[in-house]
Design a protein around this nucleic acid. Structure first.
Length: 476
RNA sequence: GGCCCUAUCGUCUAACGGUUAGGACAUAUCCUUCUCAAGGAUAGAAUCGCGGUUCGAUUCCGCGUAGGGUCACCA
């Protein structure tokens, strides 16, 4: 009756940054562990020393931390199965290799890389899948560690297994091969090392992308050879690029997850969006907090087909998450993005409704959309004219606006009062634009801008009146 | 090429044999408005094809088609 504790892991290799595809797998593993009060392990699979990129472990940890995917065991925090870096666990793989050798289930590979390459090319010209086992030597030398150690598939059979997400899966005997356990450089292969570690660390749910489905029969053969019951397999669907139909990978321009931080997306947005790309709890709610996600996450509702990435929807979702932030938080972030001289809380509401992510603020500034705040705009006087209204009329209206606004007390010079007073004038005209347009243009100098009331409020009484006066002087 | 997997609006998805096939993003129109943004409303838009099973198929089965994955001393 003892309930098995859920143990999941995220096991990246330090070959650079991690992108959304990697992160979603990590997220599902994390959600699964959190939902079940289990353990989430971070394990570094650095067995390919050639592809290793310096600094990537730190970068990956930074990415996970930014997203709040905290790990219970791993490189920094340690844990009962430390170390959590595969290159520091070499003796363990050796030990497992010895067990297999003793059982007669592993042997030294006598072929050179060139010879194997020839076999492979032959298979290709024959249009057949390459299987090493078809070249398996009769007599194998004793393994001395200088050549690869291969796993000996003992029984060629159809493999059937159950995946938590995909259900019943199977593969023919051609999926089985004498794969390499330990490379000639002494490091284990992924195929071997991850199985050993998952066994040692008591991983209950192996969460990974569907690119591993086709090698699962090999893993199962290895579990069988070691006499260990395999864990549950949780296979996630791929994420497709936004334009093409290809799986999103680094080659197809998949971005570093930290780029999303730089662009000003909230980590909650990334988590939410990623969780829903390939999973849906049912119902019509789409914006979820981290805690809500943990609650509703359900492996049986993870999809099988790939889903296409959409920046549009991501932006929309980020807006939704910004709305959920306390206002002080929003203000802090927007002010942070504004350059010196523009760091004014009054600009925040105006900016807020025009952005979907923090970096949009910088874009607004760059486009000059906020320049009206720091300087008297320069423009041609023709721009003040509203449609067919005569310059005389425009001039009169500007003066009338000036007089009306001048009457407002300095301390009452706010959006509401400005609006009511200007609108009362506007209503009497043939078209409200006859006054609203020149006033707005006099204040902003922009074809497209926020309404004149908010701009006047932001500029303050003195500056507002000065700009109206300037406009009137241009046109008269 | 072998093996494996997948298939609902343009996109993300809901509907665990019976619905006018629902929602969201995007798009369009309208309202609000001098403009833009935001907000509100409305609209168009889908079950890949062909056969079965069934009183009834988006849903189950087969075939086809299309897409994806994989076949390393990479993970």
């Amino acid at each position: 009756m003892s309930e098995q504790k859920v143990v999941t892991r995220f096991a990246p290799s330090p070959t650079g940054f991690i992108h959304v595809g990697n992160i979603r797998t990590a997220l599902y593993a994390w959600l699964l562990a959190r939902k079940n009060n289990g353990q989430f392990i971070l394990r570094v699979e650095d067995t390919d020393k050639e592809r290793e990129v310096v600094g990537s472990i730190e970068h990956i940890k930074k990415s996970l931390k930014w997203l709040g995917l905290n790990w219970d065991q791993g490189p920094d925090v340690g844990g009962p199965y430390a170390p959590y870096i595969q290159s520091e666990r070499l003796p363990l793989y050796k030990k497992y290799a010895e067990i297999l050798i003793k059982k007669g289930l592993a042997y030294a590979d006598p072929f050179s890389e060139e010879e194997i390459e020839k076999f492979r090319q032959q298979a290709e010209t024959d249009k057949k899948p390459f299987l090493y086992r078809e070249h398996r030597p009769e007599i194998t030398p004793v393994w001395d560690g200088t050549t690869p150690l291969r796993f000996k598939i003992s029984e060629l059979k159809r493999t059937e297994w159950k995946d938590v997400v995909w259900g019943e899966l199977s593969a023919g005997p051609e999926a089985l091969d004498d794969f390499i356990l330990i490379k000639s450089d002494g490091y284990p292969t992924y195929n071997f090392a991850h199985v050993v570690d998952d066994i040692e660390m008591g991983v209950t749910h192996v969460v990974r992308g569907q690119e591993f489905i086709s090698s699962t029969p090999k893993f199962l053969a290895l579990y069988e050879a070691l006499g260990v019951k395999p864990p549950l397999f949780v296979t996630t669907p791929p994420i497709m690029g936004a334009d093409g139909k290809k799986k999103l990978g680094k080659r197809d321009g998949a971005k570093d997850i930290m780029d999303y931080e730089k662009e000003g997306y909230l980590p909650e947005t990334i988590i939410n969006y990623l969780a829903f790309l390939g999973f849906n709890p049912g119902g019509e709610k789409e914006v979820y907090t981290r805690e809500e996600l943990i609650n509703v996450f359900d492996l049986t509702k993870v999809h099988h087909a790939g889903a296409q990435w959409s920046d549009d929807k991501l932006d929309w979702m980020n807006k939704e998450h910004i709305k959920m932030l306390p206002y002080e938080e929003v203000e802090k972030n927007i002010l942070h993005c504004l350059p010196e001289g523009m760091k004014n809380p009054k600009l925040v509401p105006l900016v807020l409704e025009r952005i979907s992510k923090w970096s949009d603020v910088e874009e607004m500034v760059q486009k000059g959309e906020l320049n009206f705040f720091v300087e008297q705009p320069k423009y041609n006087k023709e721009k003040l004219i509203f449609k067919n209204t005569s310059p005389q009329k425009i001039s009169e209206n500007l003066k009338e606006a000036f007089i009306a606004l001048e009457k407002i007390d300095e301390k009452d010079f706010n959006q509401e009062n400005i609006k009511s007073i200007l609108m009362s004038i506007a209503e009497k005209l043939d078209s409200r634009g006859e006054i609203l347009h020149p006033v707005r243009f006099a204040l902003s100098g922009l074809d497209k801008s926020p309404d004149p009331f908010i701009i006047a409020d932001i500029l303050g009484k003195t500056e507002t009146l000065a700009r109206l006066e300037h406009a009137a002087s241009l046109i008269s």
